[in-house]
Nucleic acid binder design. Structure first.
Lengths: 332, 332
DNA sequence: ACCGTTGTCGCCAACGTTGTAAAGGATCTG
DNA sequence: CAGATCCTTTACAACGTTGGCGACAACGGT
């Protein structure tokens, strides 16, 4: 059985409150008393019961990070940075995997372990603004959602990023630039923004939009990218460049191009989005849009920290994190 | 402000305990009472305070999963399965990233949020058996550690798996099989087992052990695999096959071989270990040892469930999960 | 009509911690 | 040396929940 403050107090010959004071670093404790208490704590291996402390304090020191899928490299890398940034604030991060489904996401947004977490950093896929009304949990949203005003939001400029990348492809002399990863479902907010950047870049270059070069995919996994490219090639649309809306899509695309006997970038250039580690070691290495994930994570954690520090009712803030283009073998 | 049982009770005109009974699905509540209470709960959007419930019950419904690095695909995939398996038991999973350092791992093993979690599934890197004495937290260890008797343990048969894979490489007619990922540090328990399987297979085939073909690496990331191969090739050791102790190492190796102008598998065959998704889409696709991750996760969660259900002092159990070899392009 | 049983509900205490406020002792000031 | 001020420690209540138990009503069997 575990020991309580009371046990320590008896052993040290002081009151429960004094032990509590020592544990919490209260200043006005005589050195010899403190020493006695600390000795008792060590002997009994006392560790405070956080449930009780949380109940009393109304805070838990835990924030949650909710992402659709942990084994999507982008989210895994993001999670790493969020954990690191949260540690700077003394917080533990509870990571929740929503699967991207609307119901599970609603549960996550409503608070997961209610009263077990002080705040939430949330990367939603299916959730709409309506699902967020009346929520009292301090929350920061990540990603491409365009709903304004409900909660703090950290994002990158998807339209510009996609536009720049498409322009880069065109700049290498390509004319038939395909887009992979379009989504016409309500969840596809990110896809819509990136598609908008793509079409804008085409227009900038005076190239007509050809819908046969735009492939929709149900998700953004490697398999979806491979399937999309097989389909594209089989349809007779001969792209000389492919802009994939995620790196995983692009890696799948590389695979499908390889199977079709096409060389990258000689025959077809390929670009992705996310800058996951895989793309730095693939054959060929992958040109990609590189969002500053470390910055995104820190911005999100800091925004949350602000809310928790009392700016409870401040208006929702929108912060844009920087991105850059990483040029690698697949487009040069 | 959030509502409490008391508020709901007043609104429904019943006692606090009756509301509690409704919330907990207690049978003997009259249907109309139950309906009134449920209506009040809905109107006030009442949600129980889990800290208080945990304090009272002594259980939290949260288990932790501690892994060295979340953005290592193997751990990310494992985490996915653990979350899924835990959900079957009604548990939430708190994922903790230890970084693999001894200190952080000790903290994790000691309980993370003390009293905030009921149990721990732990994949240690640096921790030794001595660090686990006197721990009261129900715990299941994952991975290659060979310490016996401290806690339940789920693993795969690393020696056999490595031996089988090495035998496969030899079976394709290779004679100069390199091993990548050896580690002579105390943390390298997994590496030692896999190296043992490798040498056993060489002996089986009557091939002498050549230490120039064995590359040690500080970690098992892609960059380590690439560096190891560059070094191996530069040293003049001309392998005709490479057995990497992880898939990430192997993907790095593929990259380095490509840069050296060597064809896989024509010039050099490559095999990995873990069966992460990347290896199914790489160019070429990666032959690998495929541990049954879903099974590992479920076994771990079930063992933990057993401990929590009362087998507190049962002797530590060791369970071996199955593995198989996945043959792909990189060795055929 | 009586008694035992079952169903329904409420009161009280407890989980382990910390905030408040106040008591007691030591030290300082004039 | 009295009074004020500080330091150190303590008693008590409260955070929101649930288990144990008892009160009371309704029901069935005799």
């Amino acid at each position: 059985m575990r020991h309580r403050l009371k046990d320590v107090a008896e052993r040290a010959g002081v009151s429960v409150k004094t032990v509590s004071n020592v544990v919490n670093g209260y200043q006005h404790v005589r050195p010899d008393t403190r020493a006695r208490v600390e000795a008792a704590i060590a002997e009994l291996r006392y560790r405070p019961n956080l449930s009780a402390r949380n109940l009393r304090k109304g805070r838990t020191g835990v924030i949650a990070l909710a992402v659709p899928e942990l084994d999507v490299p982008y989210f895994a890398e993001l999670a790493r940075h969020v954990v690191a940034a949260a540690a700077d604030h003394g917080w533990t991060v509870l990571i929740d995997q929503t699967g991207g489904g609307r119901e599970r996401e609603k549960v996550a947004a409503a608070g997961i372990g209610d009263h077990m977490i002080d705040g939430l950093i949330f990367s939603p896929l299916s959730l709409s603004a309506d699902d967020l009304v009346g929520l009292e949990l301090p929350m920061v949203l990540l990603g491409e959602r365009t709903d304004h005003g409900r909660a703090d939001h950290v994002m990158i400029d998807n339209v510009t990023a996609a536009r720049e990348m498409t322009a880069h492809l065109i700049g290498t002399g390509r004319r038939r630039v395909a887009a992979v990863g379009a989504q016409h479902t309500p969840e596809g907010a990110g896809a819509r923004l990136r598609l908008a950047g793509y079409t804008a870049a085409l227009a900038d270059a005076g190239i007509g939009y050809d819908e046969r070069l735009v492939a929709a995919t149900p998700a953004w996994h490697r398999a979806d990218g491979a399937a999309a490219l097989r389909h594209l090639l089989a349809s007779g649309a001969r792209p000389d460049a492919v802009f994939c809306f995620s790196d995983t899509l692009a890696l799948g695309a590389l695979r499908a191009l390889h199977e079709a006997g096409l060389r990258v970038p000689a025959d077809v250039a390929v670009a992705g989005f996310d800058d996951i580690e895989d793309g730095r070691f693939s054959v060929p290495t992958l040109t990609t849009v590189s969002p500053d994930k470390e910055r995104i994570a820190r911005l999100a954690v800091d925004l949350l920290a602000g809310r928790l520090a009392g700016e409870r009712d401040a208006p929702a803030r929108e912060v844009t994190a920087p991105h850059r283009l990483a040029f690698r073998e697949s487009t040069t």
